[in-house]
Design a protein around this nucleic acid. Sequence first.
DNA 1: CTAATGTACGTTACCGGTAAGTAACAGTTA
DNA 2: TAACTGTTACTTACCGGTAACGTACATTAG
Lengths: 221, 221
Amino acid sequence: MNVKSGVEVEKVELGAKPRVRDRIFETASDLFYRHGIRAVGVDAIASEAGTNKMSFYRAFPSKDDLVAEYLHDQEREYFSWWDQSIAAHAGNPRRQIEALFDSYLDMARPQPKGDCGGCKTSRGCALGNAAVEITEGNELLGGIVHEYKTEIRRRLRKLARDAGAREPDTLGDALMLLMEGGYYSRLTFPQNSGPIAAITKAARTLVDAAINAEPRAHKAR
Amino acid sequence: MNVKSGVEVEKVELGAKPRVRDRIFETASDLFYRHGIRAVGVDAIASEAGTNKMSFYRAFPSKDDLVAEYLHDQEREYFSWWDQSIAAHAGNPRRQIEALFDSYLDMARPQPKGDCGGCKTSRGCALGNAAVEITEGNELLGGIVHEYKTEIRRRLRKLARDAGAREPDTLGDALMLLMEGGYYSRLTFPQNSGPIAAITKAARTLVDAAINAEPRAHKAR
DNA sequence: CTAATGTACGTTACCGGTAAGTAACAGTTA
DNA sequence: TAACTGTTACTTACCGGTAACGTACATTAG
């Protein structure tokens, strides 16, 4: 495995075109997310990245290795978004949960280029979608997705516990169902035209009901 | 006519073996659900059904036609389950919603053979999973999924309205997010080991919060 | 009873396209 | 020189789909 030590060289948008490997990876991430993993061949990736298949296989041992790296990268970007969303309300887990769902609607997806330019319709959760395509024999890729979702579950349950919920695991799981459902429904309903529009109110309702033993007299909001 | 007419040809327990077309369809439905649509080729379907590719193309014009029929059939079975679940509480929409989510956990998926025999891990929603695999150019298949999910959304919103929810569309959408999330998470967490375990309590909480201006004094249930 | 016919299905071989992955060689640049 | 990259050509395998032919059986007419 090739380990790049100079990670901090991230300036891509400037004139000098990045290394072939990086171009391939960025292109592949984009194509994988938009069209699915199985639907995108290495030839398409290479030509779209302005190179050819041989340079692909000089940079990656196999397509599966690229996919694994893609999934890990998406996971990293996702939790980066997560941490960033809750950072402003450190010490206030209840507000952190609300902040998560507030920024949920704005986040089409973790974009490599920081902007959701050509991505007209968000295609949900990259890792979750991969779970649909991953065949049952593939322990490597399936394991990545499983660990990822398990970590999300763990974080939501912890937030619920820190917020003082009566049944923290139940609240955490319920919030996770909302998030998962939002991603899933986005595959069918573009942007926020689907039931995802109700996600913030739903999350707030669940949090209120789980935290306030005596619910507030009227809608707090 | 030969002397070996005494051999009983019935290996299947219920009478004569069904027609090739039916065998192909049942087999394909099973394989599509378990492994995904793109992952299953017509050769695999045919041989698994005990026939060959030519008989496949004598029964179906193309693989896409079979897929469309598969999706329609899954949709039909799903709404059949739906109607069956709420039938016992006609006239009581609130209980109908609860009944839906109560039977949600039991329903691994609409099984062709009525039993969830070989299907160890439920693979979520057949239509929803198809949405991941359907390429953007396929209007036919994409349209089927879109109509299906739109109908679910319509039904849940109507139930919420009939139940007297303050914001029926919001409650309906929130309930749909729970359902979608349940299916999605089932891809990663087998059976009910994932966050789906909290779906009934979450649904009840949302319904209570939306219907009771003054929530019940303590947990009813 | 026999023969003809239609229907349903099996078998083999093949097509064009595309997939993942590799070999060998040539050009570029530091 | 040595590392990196581009190019062409190739292998192996599978995909959806088709052609041509062979077989078993039921029906019906003569």
